[in-house]
């Protein structure tokens, strides 16, 4: 675990170090004179050797002193502002994705024509770039119907409804992308379950098709769904740079993009470690939940 954090932060740090240019290009004006640049580099400690900067960063990170970004903002408060955005979108997008994909997958197993529709839908969603999808949704819901705002984030503290309104379209965009994967995999598992021997047996005992779909086919497919959810969730916690840019959301993805463009190794390193921690946490949680929903895992242990 600690090795992961070390290597993640080291990689980010050294990539940004290898990239051309440094944060002076971002903070100082385009025509800054050599002496201005030199003074800035000196003050920011950019002249110090790489290993010294990296170890200094890791030490202060461990101590909980995350310092200030290249532009002079407190990194802790920047992250504190963007984490809720990403968490809120990650969870609501997974929730919406389940809301879309589970009923559709069950319906697809029971009715062939729905199955065809679902296949087409999930293929279309899968090949659609996320920024295009979000543009279409914005045009439809924001400009045409004027139901949701085009961009921007409203924190939960300013009211639940305003908050949900501001994250609905970005969440829906991500949800549609997640659900295309969910539907593909989950539907196959359901279909396999429905054709399996125990389902046939259930049919022979006089259970209705609906009951079979829910009871005997759904249950064995749940662990698979859970692992898909945990993967998508850990992916979403890293933030989606494309969606966050289109909707101007101040999330983790946007923060990472800014940090990379401004060559801010301190900020990028801190964010990456936190993302790695959260991904590890989601997997840990999933390992804990799995035996609860899958008796087979319990028995193997």
């Amino acid at each position: 675990m600690i090795l992961t954090f070390l290597s993640v932060s080291f990689l980010v740090f050294s990539f940004l170090d290898m990239a051309e240019g440094d944060s002076s290009a971002y903070v100082l004006p385009e025509d800054a004179a050599e002496e201005e640049i030199a003074a800035y580099r000196e003050a920011q400690g950019l002249n110090r050797p790489f290993l010294e900067r990296y170890s200094g960063f890791m030490l202060s990170f461990m101590k909980g002193e995350w310092g200030i970004s290249a532009a002079g903002h407190d990194i802790k408060s920047m992250i504190a502002h963007s984490v809720p955005v990403t968490i809120s979108i990650a969870f609501s997008s997974i929730f919406l994705a389940l809301l879309i994909s589970v009923p559709l997958s069950i319906a697809a197993v029971r009715r062939k024509w729905i199955g065809c529709g679902v296949s087409v839908l999930s293929t279309v969603l899968m090949i659609m770039p996320s920024f295009l999808l979000s543009m279409v949704l914005v045009l439809l819901f924001s400009v045409y119907f004027r139901v949701f705002p085009v961009a921007g984030y409203v924190p939960l503290s300013r009211g639940f409804i305003l908050h949900v309104r501001s994250i609905f379209l970005p969440s829906l965009t991500l949800a549609l992308l997640h659900s295309s994967l969910f539907m593909r995999v989950f539907r196959k598992a359901l279909a396999a379950g429905a054709e399996s021997q125990y389902s046939l047996f259930a049919l022979s005992t006089g259970m209705s098709e609906k009951e079979i779909a829910v009871k005997s086919a759904l249950r064995p497919s749940l662990p698979l769904l859970a692992s898909l959810v945990s993967q998508s969730l850990s992916f979403a916690l890293g933030g989606s740079a494309a969606v966050e840019t289109v909707f101007s959301l101040p999330g983790i993805g946007a923060l990472m993009v800014d940090a990379a463009l401004s060559r801010d190794a301190q900020l990028a390193g801190t964010v990456m470690i936190l993302v790695a921690v959260s991904v590890a946490f989601v997997f840990f949680l999933f390992e804990g939940i799995l035996p609860m929903i899958d008796p087979r895992v319990r028995r193997h242990r």
Binding site: M135, V138, L139, S142, V143, R146, P149, V150, A151, G152, T245, V246, F247, S248
Partner: peptide
């Protein structure tokens, strides 16, 4: 002052009154 890097998003925000 909101920061909206995408030109189309800015335009749509102006049109929708946001």
């Amino acid at each position: 002052y909101f920061f909206v890097p995408d030109g189309t998003t800015r335009r749509m925000g102006l049109e929708s009154g946001q």
